[in-house]
Design a protein around this nucleic acid. Structure first.
Lengths: 234, 234
DNA sequence: CGCTACATTGAATCGAGTCAACACGCGTGG
DNA sequence: CCACGCGTGTTGACTCGATTCAATGTAGCG
């Protein structure tokens, strides 16, 4: 696997990440200290119960963060893309990961050593605050998701997931069109249902011309209508 | 409503709250600045979308934190009791509350002004860190709850809720016995189901001698069995 | 005493999960 | 170049847990 090691200084998605709070010299230092890895599709980035050794920052590709329950069922918490941090909560709390992170597309992910991360955190007040805010936002999002899963029927949850996924632009693009590139199984786990039900709902949406499907990948045609379906149960 | 204004210096549940990280002089200052209010059952402490004006800290009684969706359905996020903080995430993020807090028993709740809270936060590193950890823990708990609601059947979710509620000791005690004092409706909202289903499940548990019921209040008889039922689907 | 809020029970209905069969595309190895 | 297998996607039929609707019971309070 040959590729140019991405440098934080010139990283195009840095201003989308928390490191946009950092001064030039900090960024350079982080860049020196960090390592970088490529992950193939379905390769594990980190595993539930493992101790964090640093902060993962996605450069390219997408990752699913999920929990496995004893019935072998997977609950996907979120899909992370370029610029997103992984596992920072566990890192900050000095605790083992509560989730597993797996690449769902080939991905390039940088790893900032724990000590370097804490350095920045201690020395850069703005960064610290932004981090705090991010965690608050995380928790809020999770709360919303919690309310959804409890009361929205599958149709509404899938509509919402599609809108959110398309909005975040986490997947590779093709001729300027955003395609959602998740297996039906992963989409199902993300909204808390099973593959078959997810497939049926997607077929419905296709029949209603809300989405189109190109080689399994989903593209949204009618954003507003999906948003409406999603909000029916808010 | 006459009562002695509780002082932080002598507050019995302070060491259960985050203020246990504070030095004596800090505590005294907070105590001077704070106000205190009594809330009757079903009275609103703060409302979704309102801007936080300070940090609420429960002295006595219990409070439900919930979201209302447009169908009029309520999703209870958590039940808070003595020593618990309310709405700190919104306060920290300088954003409107995302939930509504309502007293479910008569409650005494102190309010630390925003500026004073931020003072402590800025000046006491330990407090800041503990706060960060608390928010991380919150988010983790929410993640767990998310996984649960998606995959555990109602029976398991109710069993779990009962165990957690009893464990937290948030309700008034009676002859040293912990009774859970929630309406069936609230219990239902807490686990994401409807009143009738919650009632049926509770009846089952009663028939199986796992709990007893005294004037609508629930007391756990067989902790382990409930824990087992809850874990069946983890 | 009667009102109101909360609790309970039964019957009907429906959304979603399960099970099973089959289709499709892709890569590997003969 | 084709055959095979494997992972993924699709569809139908059946089942069941949970919600809904409706009726009735019970406790507490003014």
């Amino acid at each position: 696997m040959k590729f140019t090691l991405p440098k934080c200084e010139t990283c195009g998605i840095r201003d989308k990440s928390l490191f946009c709070m950092c001064k030039q010299e900090e960024v350079e230092h982080v860049s020196q200290m960090k390592t970088c890895n490529m992950y193939r599709k379905s390769q594990i980035v980190f595993h539930e119960n493992a101790m964090p050794i640093g902060l993962y920052c996605i450069y390219e590709g997408s990752v699913k963060i999920s929990k496995l329950n004893s019935n072998g069922r997977e609950q996907i918490m979120r899909i992370a893309g370029p610029g997103d941090f992984l596992g920072y909560r566990s890192l900050i709390a000095h605790r083992p990961y509560t989730d597993t992170a797996v690449a769902i597309e080939d991905a390039t992910i940088c790893l900032v050593p724990k000590s370097e991360f804490f350095n920045v955190m201690q020395n850069n007040k703005k960064f610290y605050e932004a981090l705090l805010q991010m965690i608050c936002k995380d928790a809020d999002e999770m709360e919303t998701k919690l309310g959804n899963i409890a009361y929205k029927p599958v149709r509404g949850r899938i509509a919402e997931a599609l809108v959110l996924l398309a909005g975040k632009n986490q997947f590779e693009k093709k001729e300027d069109k955003t395609y959602i590139n998740l297996t039906r199984e992963d989409l199902a786990s993300l909204v808390g249902t099973v593959k078959e039900t997810a497939i049926r709902t997607i077929s419905e949406f296709k029949d209603e011309n809300l989405i189109e499907i190109d080689k399994r990948r989903i593209r949204i045609l009618d954003f507003d209508k999906l948003l409406y379906i999603s909000s029916l149960y808010d």
